[in-house]
Design a protein around this nucleic acid. Structure first.
Length: 490
RNA sequence: GGCCCUAUGGUCAAGUGGUUAAGACGCUGCCCUCUCAAGGCGGAGUCAGGGGUUCAAUUCCCCUUAGGGCUACCA
């Protein structure tokens, strides 16, 4: 029985974007479904593009999403180290072995020389291809030049003709003709391995069973297959999942606004909602179900049902899903997620957040089912934490301008003032009685009151608002509104 | 340029050699209603184009087109 071992192998050149997150997610689902392991490997062989804090960002984004790796940075494991920069000896050994076996050779051509070749090939209308200059250099001579300090890369010999077949779990068999491939560089002149080489060596060394990655790598795969053969490794299963594209159909990048997991978090999206959305992007259970727990996804996920078609992510649907989670998640969890947003907005201090947790929780409770993100929630909860300093203009026109409003509010004030128990039930009763007595429509009193208490035309149910604000603040805000109305009506 | 992948409403998508071509988001009409949201009932909107194969193609094949990827001492 072969154990499933998959890996997610980001290169730390930036933050984890949603495309990477989805690749990680699919790997995770597949691993868990098959009681396998997910390995996290950091592909930090490009010393120039490496970004300092990006590893910790990637790790924390994955943790936040709840994608757990079984082996990798910070968790360790039997196949470590899990940073390619710490595995250089392995790559060198394997490259050396290929040289000894005559399957690879040193190449002393400089980047400038290669560039010249490329330019002339381009002018001649030919395909770009390494011209094979160092291909037949005698090994002893090459070694001597190395010993003298000359820089060289190591290239893999690739047959000039023939075909490579890539068996892919989502695409089926894909054929490539060899005549289009260069002798590819496997070790750079700075001693670092190239992506295709390090990837193959590590996937083998880490006993990976399935490589699940983005489709951008499909065209690299024949080269990797060739490397498997050259190195004498057992072949491996590949699955290339369609990419996630930005709304303008191009590859995800910074210029598209929010594409990183962190940015989505800052915009008030919840981790399980993002995971749910990403699960549905490029995969469908084949049923009507839209809302999934990870456990359900693990149960139903099928690699061969993964879409071959690149998907454009749609914030609107993510927002909708987020709303679903916001309303159905445990209230304490939502409250905990919301508090940082309150802090950032300056609605509460850390001490207040701790002391008044129950109140905050109550506020979140009445506000959450009418908003879709935590940012919206914070916005909608402002009335509770901040005094009303202005009234929405539209509301003023609609509700504060009719004659007799001030008097109406004054009466409401009078009645509310007499209440002993100021809760939802009693405030509502009071209003009902008053409305009946005056023979008016409920809205005639409720709308101006809402505007007076919140400064807005939109809020949670009015009596929820009242109960939460408490008697003193309600009365004060009513008074304030009355004088405001009298003032503007002059 | 060469090679590879892909193509069902605006977006995500189910689906099949014969269907009125699901569903979701979004948009929209109505109902409900203290606003908003939610909910309920409706609506508009799709098989990229052209050739084949076939009694029959959205479905199979080819071409075109479009999008994406690879073609680096990036990953």
């Amino acid at each position: 029985m072969n154990t499933v071992r998959v890996r997610f192998a980001p290169s730390p050149t930036g933050y984890l974007h949603i495309g990477g997150a989805r690749t990680a997610l699919f790997n995770w689902l597949f691993a868990r479904q098959n009681q396998g392991k997910l390995v996290l490997r950091i592909e930090d062989t490009d010393t120039e593009r490496l970004k300092e804090d990006s590893i910790s960002q990637i790790l924390s984004s994955m943790r936040w999403l709840g994608i757990e790796w079984d082996e990798g940075p910070e968790t360790g494991g039997p196949c470590g180290p899990y940073y390619q920069s710490k595995r250089l000896d392995l790559y060198r050994e394997e490259a050396e072995r290929l040289i000894q076996e005559g399957k690879a050779y040193y190449c002393f051509c400089t980047p400038t020389e290669l560039e010249e070749v490329r330019v002339s090939q381009h002018q001649a209308g030919e395909a770009f291809r390494y011209n094979g200059k160092c291909r037949d250099l005698l090994l002893s001579i090459a070694q001597k030049r190395i010993a003298e300090g000359e820089k060289a890369v190591i290239r893999l010999r690739i047959p000039a003709s023939g075909q490579v077949k890539v068996k892919d779990l989502v695409h089926g068999e894909v054929k490539f003709s060899l005549d289009q491939f260069d002798d590819l560089v496997i070790m750079k002149s700075n001693g670092m391995p190239t992506y295709n080489f390090a990837c193959v060596v590590d996937d083998h060394a880490m006993a990976i069973s399935h490589v699940i990655r983005a489709e951008e790598h499909l065209s690299n795969t024949p080269k990797q297959v060739l490397l498997y053969e050259a190195l004498g490794y057992e072949p491996i299963q590949f699955a290339h999942v369609a990419m996630i594209l930005a709304p303008d159909r191009s590859k995800l990048s910074k210029r598209h606004g929010a594409t990183s997991v962190e940015e989505f978090r800052d915009q008030g999206f919840l981790a399980p909602a993002i995971v749910n959305y990403l699960t549905l992007l490029g995969w469908s259970p084949g049923s009507d179900q839209e809302i999934f727990t990870p456990a359900e996804s693990m149960d139903k996920f099928q690699l061969d049902k993964v879409s071959k078609k690149a998907a454009i992510y749609d914030t609107k649907k993510l927002t909708w899903i987020n709303g679903q989670y916001l309303n159905s998640m445990n209230l304490d969890d939502v409250t905990r997620e919301t508090i940082p947003f309150f802090l950032r907005k300056g609605l509460v201090t850390e001490e207040q957040a701790a002391e008044q947790y129950d109140t905050i929780r109550a506020v979140v409770s009445v506000v959450r089912d009418r908003v879709k993100t935590l940012v919206e929630l914070t916005e909608a909860a402002e009335y509770y934490f901040k005094d009303v300093t202005e009234y929405e203009e539209k509301g003023q026109r609609k509700y504060f301008s009719s004659p007799g409003v001030a008097e109406l509010l004054r009466k409401a004030h009078e009645r509310l003032e007499q209440l002993e128990v100021f809760d939802v039930k009693h405030t509502e009763e009071t209003y009902q009685i008053l409305i009946e007595e005056l023979g008016i429509k409920a809205g005639e009193l409720i709308h101006p009151t809402r505007l007076a208490l919140t400064g807005r035309t939109v809020s949670p149910g009015l009596f929820d608002v009242m109960a939460l604000l408490g008697k003193d603040r309600c009365l004060a805000r009513l008074k304030q509104a009355i004088s405001f109305i009298l003032q503007i009506s002059i």
